[in-house]
Design a protein around this nucleic acid. Structure first.
Lengths: 242, 242
DNA sequence: ATAATGCGTTACATATTTATGACGGTATGA
DNA sequence: TCATACCGTCATAAATATGTAACGCATTAT
């Protein structure tokens, strides 16, 4: 549940307060007072979510939201609007601009965190800390552990040891199970978007992940789709008969 | 859960009503009509939680809340704000200066109690005075002592000597056993939010904690999760099956 | 069939992250 | 006031994770 959150708010008292609460919840917080700052900031570090004040000195929050939505790199970032008003019309146009949710001031930190969690779960499921269980594998983001249910049904689940990258990789693949991801997609989502890394590196990490899975006989879950990429799938791919 | 609650409310009828309900729920209640009174009161008896009316005759609730947050002794006290529904919400500039929650009047006693309970549990779960016992370790918040049950079953439990920080660290980790915490999270929750302390310092305290645990052969309970943080866990993080 | 492409696998140098012991400063208490 | 306990930081060692290149096999295209 640790996300990078960009807070765009001109009232410093509020900004600080929000930042405080977000940090305490374990998020990484970036702050900006103006849309201009926010743009710069999001250019260097791509946030996972943007908390956006409705009224900003230089550009309206609405406008900034549109800008985010227009650009390829940022168009998928969830946005939560902060507004002091309660008028229905604001709600409409805020959501229109592509905001995922909006909160009217004043709001409690609890409400804020709840909304953030909800939005993240909706837009970036791999960031929510829910346990994922597929194909006899159980991955728990909170305890950071992966268990494999023994194939020969019965008996204790075995614990799986993974390096940091392999853990994220598996988490991502399991979150979007059955879907094929190109190496580039995996690099962007798991390594980050600014990195310059060889596509082939993904192969190696897939290899390492598989090796760990082999120790519990689950290597068939990570499948290669030739010419396309990789996939986590419960169904066996090709080789049927043995 | 018995807590000392300071109620700051100038309308006596409401104050009394609240006090009545809180007492009935087993809390110890302090009442103040003005911020000035409230300050005096909190100087003599440190409350566990403050119920604060938004509008006060001498000082705004907002200001009082800030004052509480500023001072070392009171900065961690949870605050719940009371606001009248009739007040224009956009006059309330932003979050309640660090309020943990807020309730709009009129509210039901049941709602009030529920929020109080939630805030207390959320804000200081590791402050509840319950003895925690996991993995052969027994930590008693009241006596501020930690005992280790000897591994080679039966024989007297050994007492464990810990510094203040190590005690809080262990208390926190045991409270949220099995969960992984990043260094930043640990700093925020155990040291406090405003602190400017190196992440690496956590390592050192973990080291000191482990050293103490070694003396009773329990050091395996505090585990490193590379790239993420630390965890208190009963399960060994090493290999599982052979 | 042969070439071209894609993938799996391994080895390895490098980078990153943790562990640890030492040090100076501060608070605490006798 | 002196002694002790604690704390935060640093330097260095140790551990382990990471990205690449290289090579060989498998699959696909020509």
């Amino acid at each position: 549940m640790t996300a990078t959150i960009l807070v765009v708010e001109d009232e410093l008292a509020i900004q600080e307060l929000i930042a405080l609460n977000l940090k305490k919840a374990g998020h990484l917080v970036l702050c900006a007072e103006t849309a201009e700052q926010a743009v710069k900031m999001s250019n260097s570090v791509l946030p996972d979510l943007v908390l956006l004040d409705w009224m900003l000195p230089d550009m309206s929050g609405l406008e900034f939201a549109r800008k985010l939505r227009r650009e390829e790199r940022t168009k998928d970032i969830p946005i939560i609007m902060l507004t002091a008003r309660t008028q229905e019309s604001d709600k409409i146009s805020g959501l229109d601009a592509g905001a995922d949710d909006y909160i009217t001031k004043p709001f409690s930190p609890r409400e804020l965190l709840a909304r953030i969690k909800a939005v993240l779960r909706r837009r970036l499921p791999e960031m929510s800390d829910e346990v994922i269980e597929i194909g006899g594998l159980k991955l728990d983001p909170v305890t950071h552990r992966v268990y494999a249910q023994a194939n020969d049904n019965n008996i204790k689940p075995e614990k799986l040891l993974l390096g940091p990258t392999e853990f994220r990789l598996l988490h991502f693949l399991m979150t979007y199970a059955e879907r094929v991801h190109s190496r580039t997609q995996l690099l962007n989502r798991i390594w980050g978007d600014h990195v310059f890394i060889e596509d082939r590196t993904v192969d190696v990490h897939i290899r390492r992940l598989r090796k760990s899975l082999e120790s519990v006989g689950k290597e068939h879950l990570v499948q290669t789709v030739r010419g396309t990429g990789y996939r986590f799938s419960v169904e066996k791919s090709e080789e049927s008969v043995e």
